[in-house]
C-alpha cells in the first residue's frame, strides 16, 4: 500500500485559549471517500479549515501528497490539487455564475483546459449553464451548492474536501448531492467529507471517523460502523 494522499497527525488547534482539536490523526487514501461525522462543535469544520490552511495548528502536521502544508500559505494550496467546498457554499453573491466558476479556475493558466473543464461542469450541472449570467446570490440553495462544487472542480483537484454539502437542502436535493459526490470518485477524485447527515455520509463513504469534542473516538469501515450499536444510537437516530 502506498502513502496516503492526506495524512493528518496529532493535530491540535486552538481558538485563543480554547482547544478545538485535541490531537487528532487520520488519513485519506487516494481514490477513497472518507467522512468525518460528529455533533455540532465536535471540530469537523476546524479540521477542514486546518487542512486547507485557513487555520494553523499549534501542534501536529498535515501532509498532502508527500508535502507538509504547515508552511504553505492558504492561497497556494488549491494549486497543489486540494480544493475546499466550504460550509454554507460561500459562493460570491455579487458575481455571475460564470465569474464564480472562473474564480474556481483562478490558479489555472491553460485557457483551453479551463474552457474544457467549464464545458464538463456545465454538462454535469446543466442548471448552472442555463443561469451562467445570473448573479450567484439569486440562485436557490441547491443551485448554490452545485455552483460551489462546480467552482471546486474548475481548479482540477486531485482531492476535494467538502463541508456539510447537504445542509439546508430538501431530501430530494440531498440525494442528488450525494450522487454527485459519488461521481467525483468515479472521476478519480479523492473526497474528504464532513457531514451532519451521518447516515447518508456513511452510505457513500469507504471509511468513517467519528469526532467528539475535538477527539476521534471511533474509526472504521463505513459498512461496519453503520451497524455499530453506539453509532446507531448517537448519530443515526435509531
Amino acid at each position: 500500500m502506498s502513502e496516503p494522499l492526506l495524512q493528518v497527525k496529532d493535530l491540535e488547534v486552538y481558538y485563543g485559549v480554547i482547544q478545538a482539536l485535541k490531537g487528532i490523526s487520520f488519513h485519506v487514501n487516494e481514490g477513497e471517500i472518507v467522512s468525518l461525522i460528529g455533533a455540532n462543535g465536535a471540530g469537523k469544520t476546524t479540521t477542514l479549515h486546518t487542512v486547507t490552511g485557513l487555520l494553523h495548528p499549534k501542534h501536529g502536521s498535515v501532509v498532502y501528497a508527500g508535502q507538509n502544508l504547515a508552511k504553505v500559505p492558504a492561497h497556494k494550496i488549491v494549486s497543489m490539487g486540494l480544493a475546499h467546498v466550504p460550509e454554507g457554499r460561500r459562493v460570491f453573491q455579487n458575481l455571475s455564475v460564470y465569474d464564480n466558476l472562473l474564480l474556481g479556475a483562478y490558479t489555472q493558466t491553460d485557457k483551453e483546459k479551463i474552457s474544457r473543464q467549464m464545458d464538463s461542469v456545465f454538462d454535469q450541472f446543466p442548471r448552472l449553464k442555463e443561469r451562467r449570467r445570473q448573479l450567484a446570490g439569486t440562485l436557490s440553495g441547491g443551485e448554490q451548492q452545485m455552483l460551489a462544487m462546480g467552482r471546486a472542480l474548475l481548479s482540477d483537484p486531485k482531492m476535494i474536501v467538502m463541508d456539510e454539502p447537504s445542509m439546508g437542502l430538501s431530501p430530494l436535493l440531498v440525494s442528488e448531492i450525494f450522487e454527485i459526490i459519488q461521481s467525483f470518485r468515479a472521476a478519480g477524485k479523492t473526497v474528504l467529507l464532513v457531514e451532519q447527515n451521518a447516515k447518508k455520509a456513511m452510505t457513500v463513504s469507504d471509511r468513517v471517523y467519528v469526532l467528539e469534542t475535538g477527539s476521534i473516538i471511533k474509526e472504521g469501515m463505513a459498512s461496519d460502523l453503520i451497524n455499530d450499536e453506539s453509532i446507531k444510537k448517537a448519530y443515526l437516530g435509531e
Binding site: 490552511g53 492561497h75 460561500r90 474564480l103
Partner: peptide, 24 residues
Amino acid sequence: SKTGRAMVAVSEDRDAALLMGVNT
C-alpha cells in the same frame, strides 16, 4: 479582468477567495 474579479471576490468573502487560490 481576472484581477478585477479577484478584487470583487476578496471584498465579498476573503476566506472563500483564499480557497480559490487568490493571494488576498
